Amino acid sequence: MNNALQENKKYKKFVVDSRLQYFKPHATKIEKTFAEEISSTLGSNSKSIHPKFFYDNKGSELFKQICSVSEYYPTRTEISILQKLQTELPPFLDEDFRLVELGSGSSVKTRLILDFFTSSQKNTEYFPIDISEILTESSEELLNDYKNLTITGIIDTYEGGLEFLKTYDDKKNLIIFLGSSFGNFSPIDGYKFLEKVYSTMKPGDLFLIGLDLVKDKTILESAYNDSEGITAKFNLNVLSRINDELDADFDLKNFSHYAIYNEKDQRIEMYLKSLADQSIVVSKSDLELKLQKDELIHTEYSHKYRLSQIHDLLDDVGFELKHTWLDDKKHFSLTLVSKN
């Protein structure tokens, strides 16, 4: 490793033991605080809440439940493709690859990839990049299950973590971005993000990205309006979080979950709909919010793609397409690319 990096003024190194270490930016703020962002996005004319704020402890638990409901196909579909990859991805790799994940995980998906890394390598390195400190907890669970695994966590934004990786060492990386999280980006921000990934990569590095595909509107809208109402609870929970953490007085009975598929823009649009004229105070954001009946607060976009769009997008950034894997119904894709 570049010794100068260890002294990098931006990051502090924490060594838990011989198999687990993590880097975290010094006291500089990684991003705006929760209160600052809520003040900005709810205080604007087009009111919104960033989807990253869904994932407090309760939100994360609700999302796990969403992944199990019958209508929500993305998680189980991506897992079915990853099971195929256990035999089909290794020919693209060798002993020298490290696994880098954007968004840390101890879930089934991460483990499916770690299974063949740890079975084919004497020692496997895993670099989760995540803004949340939860990666330290999930890392310890993984270390218990994989005895030849070492983990270096990077607690930072994806962009910050990728910049860190760029100067870390010369080892080849397989960077993975699963779960169709890319679909939450706007087209412009998504393109910039892919450019960042590309600029980080060395010749020989690989990038595996999961993307949800355009399909029948009924399937898509059912996935985000499940019959058990779990997605509705998940969406409304962000208001509970604002109440708890920012001393707000949202009455959840005055809101409903609203999700539709915009066919023109190929995206699911998720909102919280105000069921009455109402006024809400968010004390720690110094915000008094006035909402009219039926006014919408935008909480998430989830863009869907055609295969031709995926290949054109990756090609425009400069990637070289290696392989695309699909499920039997062609609902979801995993695409492997390298740097030209």
Results as ranks from 00 to 15, higher is better:
318 G>N: 07
221 E>T: 11
63 F>T: 04
208 L>V: 02
300 E>T: 13
294 D>M: 05
16 V>W: 14
276 A>R: 11
239 L>P: 07
95 E>K: 04
313 L>P: 07
257 H>T: 01
232 A>F: 09
254 N>Y: 10
306 R>P: 03
183 G>C: 06
28 T>F: 06
267 R>S: 10
87 T>F: 11
219 I>S: 12
173 N>R: 15
144 N>E: 15
169 D>L: 11
140 E>T: 13
272 L>N: 07
23 F>S: 04
269 E>G: 09
267 R>V: 01
279 S>A: 06
211 L>D: 01
124 T>P: 15
18 S>L: 02
26 H>W: 08
257 H>W: 15
97 F>Y: 15
13 K>Q: 08
141 E>H: 10
313 L>T: 11
20 L>S: 03
337 V>R: 03
189 D>E: 13
14 F>Q: 05
303 H>G: 05
24 K>H: 10
180 S>W: 05
54 F>N: 00
169 D>S: 13
259 A>M: 10
266 Q>H: 14
302 S>R: 06
89 L>Q: 06
76 R>S: 04
235 N>I: 08
158 Y>L: 14
125 E>D: 09
15 V>A: 00
226 D>K: 12
152 T>V: 01
97 F>T: 00
293 K>N: 12
303 H>I: 10
231 T>F: 12
6 Q>F: 15
75 T>G: 07
49 I>F: 05
30 I>E: 10
172 K>D: 04
244 D>I: 00
241 R>S: 13
319 F>M: 08
301 Y>C: 02
3 N>C: 03
184 N>R: 04
159 E>H: 06
69 V>R: 03
242 I>T: 05
229 G>I: 13
279 S>H: 08
313 L>N: 08
206 L>S: 08
74 P>H: 07
111 R>W: 06
315 D>N: 08
13 K>V: 03
150 T>G: 05
336 L>K: 12
157 T>E: 11
258 Y>N: 13
46 S>P: 00
54 F>T: 00
165 L>Y: 11
236 L>F: 15
157 T>R: 08
229 G>C: 11
235 N>C: 04
290 K>F: 15
27 A>S: 11
116 F>C: 02
6 Q>A: 08
253 K>F: 10
263 E>N: 14
191 Y>C: 07
118 T>N: 10
